[in-house]
Amino acid sequence: MNIFRLLGDMCHLVAIIILFLKIWRSKSCAGISGKSQVLFALVFTTRYLDLFTSFISVYNTVMKVVFLVLAYATVYLIYLRFRSTYNSESDSFRVEFLLVPVAGLSFLENYAFAPLEILWTFSIYLESVAILPQLFMITKTGEAESITTHYLFFLGLYRALYLANWVWRYHTEGFFDQIAVVSGVVQTIFYCDFFYLYFTKVLRGSGKMTLP
């Protein structure tokens, strides 16, 4: 464990909690892409199956359970509890255009042709594109509430910190996870446009983010 990875995990947790609390307290999921949240729940489900097969640490196990519970709870809020506030017409990204290539690639490019390993690879590839429906929805509606932009900021920051973690681990322990690193770079690049708008618009106190 190193500071970059710990900070990254904390950013990830903060992002997920920000979103959950925003929906829970405002009793509305307006402007939130339910499709992205379903994809994130799928990412955690396919990645954390090793909860039942290998114990790494208390921290690892606890965080996996927390991420799974919050991810499914958020999907529940969007599609069941507050479904009347869900903008399904704005959440129109065709997720099959993500799932099919990601599934295909996870069969082609993986470390081992074993079920758990292919599912882990699938979750890594899927996570790098899972935010696209949400970013697409924001470009479609042309705006995002500031709380949603804070959610996206921490979510983007988490994987950027993981990139620093991989640089650190490469130099200190020779660790190099090619699939995770390449996917992590792609994932972080998708946030660059948002980061620019976030720093130039939201942090200047203009509250809501309106796209030019």
Partner: peptide, 10 residues
Amino acid sequence: MIGQTSHDEL
């Protein structure tokens, strides 16, 4: 170590 199949990261 490319290709390890034990993943210790979240």
